[in-house]
């Protein structure tokens, strides 16, 4: 290892040589190797974080290259899994650190078995849906590992630290899992919004990992780069809810329960996939329908089910969260459609 490698970072007072040694001994789990995962992984690898584990279920596509900074054209041509392509690039950037890549879904059991078998110091959220974030949130509070929420859409972005024993959790900030939240494939995304979220998330990560924990932000920070607005919101007054199932007095960690996991089943001989996703509360069918209509999908509904037609795909959704996706026999594709309309 070149002696000089981290000199500029060590010259930054709050990190110094002691902080640099701390970084080298730490293990970060990055959930998602898309835009936020790419950016965070690159910064933390260059910073000398000792071990990086990166999880993703998807593969590299051409539409990723505009903002997902670890990937190149050849990765899209080869359709490499994002976790693998990311790990390849990280190893080129810094051969001194350890990188683990997992091509997987990050279900509750995937995540907990990973946390059971290795010591993780921090989890970085680089996912693209709330279903996974509520799982990460439960795992974080059960295993007492902080996680950093990051999300962006259009020119808008959000970052928030969730630190067990110190901050209210995601449940306390958003009691009900949002339906039809702002996402990239719908509202589009510009790369600077990604980089802004990455900058804030990775700065918070460096603070936590280098032993500067008192400097961690206690705000829910939002920005809009196009309208030049910025808000840094205090969360304390709404506060930690005593009855919260994740961070309250008697936590039950509902999203880690196996029956809460999303399951898919490809129907033999038909291009259809069943999705079972027991929700904590019944689905608001009217709300889901109005969001689907916003997305220009054809929507039909009755009191029992909702039908959404998007091109060759047809989703039939029941109030308990089950859905039948017609027009594909690919469970990943079916899940993407489900998340697009329902989480």
């Amino acid at each position: 290892m070149s002696h000089d490698r981290y000199s500029r970072q060590q010259n930054f007072g709050p990190i110094g040589t002691a902080g640099q040694q701390e970084l080298a001994a730490k293990h970060v789990l990055i959930v998602g190797a898309g835009a936020l995962g790419s950016g965070n992984a690159e910064i933390l690898a260059r910073s000398g974080v000792g071990t990086i584990t990166i999880i993703d279920r998807d593969y590299v596509e051409w539409s990723n290259l505009q903002r997902q900074s670890l990937f190149c054209e050849q990765d899209a041509i080869d359709q490499l899994p994002k976790a693998v392509a990311a790990a390849n690039r990280i190893k080129q950037i810094n051969a001194d650190i350890t990188v683990h890549a997992h091509v997987m879904d990050c279900t509750a059991s995937d995540l907990t078995s990973l946390l059971d078998t290795s010591k993780v110091d921090l989890m970085l959220d680089a996912t693209d849906n709330f279903a996974i974030r509520y799982i990460i949130n439960d795992a974080a509070y059960q295993y007492q590992i902080p996680w950093i929420y990051g999300a962006c859409s259009g020119s808008y972005g959000v970052v928030c630290n969730f630190i067990p024993g110190q901050s209210p959790c995601l449940h306390c900030v958003m009691e009900r899992m949002p339906i039809g939240s702002a996402s990239c494939d719908r509202e589009g995304i510009i790369a600077p919004a990604v980089q802004m979220v990455v900058a804030m998330q990775s700065a918070e990560a460096l603070k936590w990992l280098s032993g500067n924990r008192t400097q961690m932000s206690d705000r829910y920070t939002v920005f809009d780069l196009w309208s030049n607005m910025h808000q840094s919101i205090r969360m304390d007054k709404t506060g930690k809810h005593e009855a919260c199932p994740t961070c309250g007095a008697q936590p039950s960690y509902p999203y880690l329960k196996s029956e809460a996991a999303m399951r898919t089943e490809v129907l033999c001989g038909r291009s259809s996939v069943w999705i079972r996703y027991p929700r904590q509360e019944p689905l608001d069918m009217n709300l889901a329908a109005s969001h689907a209509m916003q997305l220009q999908a054809e929507v039909k509904s009755n009191p029992y089910l909702l039908q959404i037609q998007e091109g060759e795909y047809r989703l039939v959704i029941f109030q308990d969260g089950r859905a039948l996706v017609h027009g594909t026999s690919d469970s990943l594709e079916a899940k993407k459609l489900y998340h697009r309309y329902l989480t």
């Binding site: 959220d125 996912t127 702002a182 939002v222």
Partner: peptide, 28 residues
Amino acid sequence: AVNEQFVEQTHVIEPNDTVALLPPVSGG
């Protein structure tokens, strides 16, 4: 958020307050 503070439904907003409307965002 009212004056950069999350508030409950019963909170009273004053005429000179700044109210931010924040949609949830999931992209990444």
